[in-house]
C-alpha cells in the first residue's frame, strides 16, 4: 500500500548507518557550484556532481574539489542528469541517495532531516516539502550562502503559491493519484533498493512527478519532511508547468 506520512524528523533516533551519496545535477552553475559542494561535502559520504553539458566554468570549478564528477557531453536536462548520478552512485555502493539542486535553492542543513526517516527505517523514499514548513515562505539568501550574488525574492511568489502549485498538485492527484503536499519537490532521498527499481524516463522537469508516480507504483513507503527553500528570481513559470504536463502526456502516449 502506498503510504504518505508527514514525518517530522525524530530526535535522537538510532542511526542505521550506510553510505550517503548526494547527487547534484549542474548546468551552467559556475556562480554557486563551489559553495554548494563545500556546504554539502561534510554532510554526506560522497558528493556526485553531474555536469549536464555546461558551457561555463561549472565543470572546471567542480573538478578541483575532490568529488565524483560524471559529465554529460551535451545538455540533457535535470531528470537525465539525476538518472546518471543515481546510476553512478549505485555502482559505487551507495546505501542512501540524496537528490539536491546546484542553484542554491535548498539548504544543505536539511540533508540530515531528509535522510533521517530512511536511517530510522521509517521510509524508503523521502520528499522535501516546501509546504510543511512555515520557514520556507520567508527564507532569504544570506551573504556567504550559495546564491548570495543572485537576485532573490523573499518567499514563494504568490502566483506560484496560489496558482501553479495547486494546479500541479491537482494534476498529480487526478492523473497519477499522488497526494503529496509539494507536487514538484526536487529535494528527495531514497534507499539504494528503491533507486534500483525506479527508472524514470523524463529527462527534464517532469521527472519530479514521474518519480512520485514510481514511488506509488512500487508501493514504497514514502514520507515528507519540511524543508526550507530560498527563492530566486528564476524558477519554474506557468509555461514550464504546462511543458511538464505536455511531457508527461506524451510519455503516457509513448509508453
Amino acid at each position: 500500500m502506498y503510504m504518505v506520512e508527514n514525518i517530522m524528523p525524530a530526535q535522537g533516533g538510532p542511526a542505521l548507518g550506510g553510505k550517503v551519496f548526494c547527487v547534484i545535477p549542474a548546468y551552467n552553475e559556475s556562480r554557486t557550484i563551489k559553495a554548494i559542494i563545500n556546504e554539502v561535502k561534510p554532510l554526506v559520504d560522497r558528493v556526485v556532481v553531474v555536469d549536464d553539458g555546461s558551457t561555463d566554468q561549472t565543470y572546471d570549478l567542480a573538478k578541483d574539489l575532490d568529488i565524483d564528477l560524471p559529465r554529460h557531453i551535451i545538455n540533457r536536462g535535470q531528470g537525465a542528469a539525476l538518472r546518471t548520478g543515481t546510476a553512478y552512485s549505485l555502482s559505487q555502493g551507495a546505501d542512501i541517495i540524496v537528490h539536491f539542486d546546484a542553484d542554491g535553492q535548498f539548504l544543505s542543513q536539511d540533508i540530515a532531516k531528509i535522510i533521517e526517516p530512511i536511517k530510522l527505517g521509517q521510509a524508503e523514499v523521502v520528499f522535501g516539502s516546501r509546504f510543511l514548513s512555515t520557514q520556507s515562505d520567508s527564507c532569504r539568501a544570506e551573504p556567504g550562502q550559495a546564491g548570495e550574488n543572485k537576485q532573490v525574492e523573499s518567499g514563494m511568489p504568490l502566483f506560484k503559491k496560489y496558482f501553479i502549485m495547486p494546479l500541479a498538485r491537482a494534476v498529480n492527484k487526478i492523473f497519477f493519484k499522488i497526494d503529496l503536499t509539494d507536487p514538484q519537490s526536487g529535494f528527495r532521498a531514497m534507499t539504494a533498493q528503491a533507486a534500483r527499481k525506479m527508472d524514470w524516463q523524463q529527462d527534464r522537469m517532469a521527472h519530479c512527478s514521474e518519480i512520485m508516480f514510481m514511488v506509488k507504483k512500487n508501493n514504497f513507503k514514502a514520507a515528507e519532511v519540511p524543508i526550507r527553500v530560498i527563492y530566486h528570481s528564476f524558477g519554474q513559470s506557468l509555461f514550464d508547468g504546462f511543458k511538464i504536463i505536455k511531457d508527461l502526456f506524451i510519455a503516457m502516449l509513448v509508453s
Binding site: 553531474v50 553539458g53 565524483d68 564528477l69 560524471p70 559529465r71 554529460h72 557531453i73 551535451i74 540533457r76 536536462g77 537525465a80 538518472r83 546518471t84 546510476a87 553512478y88 555502482s91 524516463q201 529527462d203 506524451i250 510519455a251 502516449l253 509513448v254
Partner: peptide
C-alpha cells in the same frame, strides 16, 4: 513525428549517460 522525436531524444540521453559513466 513527435513520438518519433521523443524516442530519438531518449536514445540520445541513453548514449550520453553511457558515455558519462564509461568516462568516469
Amino acid at each position: 513525428l513527435r513520438l518519433k522525436l521523443e524516442k530519438i531524444e531518449k536514445d540520445i540521453t541513453k548514449i550520453v549517460k553511457h558515455i558519462a559513466l564509461k568516462d568516469k
